[in-house]
Structures are given as C-alpha cells and as structure tokens.
C-alpha cells in the first residue's frame, strides 16, 4: 500500500488486526485491513491490506523489578474490588468450601450476621490479586505468606482496597538474578476498617543480575 493510500485510511476509519483476509497470496499473519468507523469495508469494496510490523510496537510493560523496591516504601494498589454474592458463591463452591456460613444467608443471620460471610480465602485471594501488578507480576516464585489475620468479616457488597509496605528487600546469595522481597499488606473495607493483613515473600527478578 502506498503512503498516500495509508494516509486516506486515517480519518473516520479504525484499524483492526485481522488474520482472516482471503484472496491474496501474502501471509495472513501480521496484516490488517481498514474499515470505516461504522464497521463497513472501505469504498474500494474490499478490505485494504497492509503490512504492519508488530514486532516494532513497544510493550506497555507492567510490574516492578527488585531494584524498584526499598525498605519502608509504601504502595497503594490499583482498582479496589466490590465483592458480590456471586463472587462468593462461585469461589466457595469451586474450592469445595460449602460451609453454610458462606452460602446460606439464613444460617449466617441466625449466627448474628447481616448476610452470608464472604469466604475469607476469597478476601485473601482478592487482596493478593490487587497487589500483584505492584509487587510480583514481573516475575518470581511466590515463596510464602505469614501472619494472615482476618480482622473482621466481609459481607457481599463490601469493597476492598489494599496497600503494602516493603518490609525488606535483600539479595539472594544463591541466585544472582533474583532478590527476596517481603511486604506487609493491609486491606480495608469501604469504611476504612481493617479486614485482612499479612506478610508475603517472593523472589523478585532483578533488572540487572549481580
């Protein structure tokens, strides 16, 4: 495709990667065709095929490396999460935790709760999940967790937000490519009340090996 024709594919049109273009002898992988913003083919009557060098697109990288952590650093994690009764029912049943405290609202009310108690393992998994991009997504095995305390029950409709503090970040003498980082994480509900806290330790890849 000429530069001029590529330019005309700009305004009012969107580009979609597509591997299903037929009738040409060029490889399917790595091509796209242009359609108008309403989703119809261009005026030429058939999709316009061009080569796109996807390998040249910069990755929008996620995660932190060992060098990005220092003792005492505080990280507030993204998104937050409202836990629904559906989340709790799916998680509890899929993990074989059929306890009526988590799945029978009348039973839970009889024990003094306003609704079922959200499975604490779901609370813990969600808080760890919210922290992954900041703490461990860039790679390294999950070594373990200590001192997990469930401070109070969470109920469907409650919203969790989480933050962590770096407790320690030390090199590993046996693994020059990794360091060992320990964080203390806390999660609170929408009223600012502490719901769960714990310490977690991971191997974290270094940007530059020793």
């Amino acid at each position: 495709m000429s530069a001029a024709r590529q330019a005309t594919a700009g305004a009012g049109q969107q580009r979609f990667g597509c591997g299903l273009v037929s009738g040409t002898d060029t490889p399917l992988r790595g091509r796209e065709f242009a359609v108008t913003s309403s989703g119809h083919p261009t005026q030429a009557g058939r999709p316009e095929v061009t080569e796109v060098d996807f390998d040249s697109f910069p990755v929008v990288a996620k995660g932190r490396r060992f060098e990005d952590f220092e003792q005492g650093q505080v990280l507030w994690h993204h998104w937050g999460r409202t836990i629904t009764s559906g989340d709790n029912a799916l998680f509890s049943t899929a993990t074989c935790n059929w306890n009526p405290l988590h799945l029978n609202a009348e039973y839970a009310r009889a024990l003094g709760h306003p609704d079922v108690v959200v499975n604490p393992m779901l609370v813990l998994c969600t808080v760890v999940g919210l922290s992954v991009e900041d703490l461990s997504e860039a790679g390294g095995p999950f070594l373990g967790m200590q001192d997990v305390v469930f401070h109070q029950p969470l109920y469907p409709g409650d919203t969790l937000t989480a933050g962590s503090e770096v407790v320690s970040a030390v090199g590993s003498s046996s693994r020059p490519r990794d360091g060992i980082v320990t964080w203390r994480t806390e999660a609170r509900n929408q009223h600012g009340e502490l719901v769960v806290s714990y310490r977690r330790t991971n191997l974290v890849a270094k940007r530059r090996p020793d």
Binding site: C96, N97, L101, F142, L143, G144, M145, V148
Partner: peptide, 22 residues
C-alpha cells in the same frame, strides 16, 4: 476448602493463617 466440612462446618469465624508455603 477440601478440609472445610471436617474442620470448619461448625466454625463461627476464620481467625487467620500462617506459615503458608508453596
């Protein structure tokens, strides 16, 4: 979860976990 019927069917509260290792 696989332990829960035998360990927590009559639980009032899960208090905490510790020494988790994978």
């Amino acid at each position: 979860g696989l332990t829960s019927q035998d360990t927590a069917e009559n639980a009032l509260e899960e208090l905490g976990l510790d020494e988790i290792r994978f």
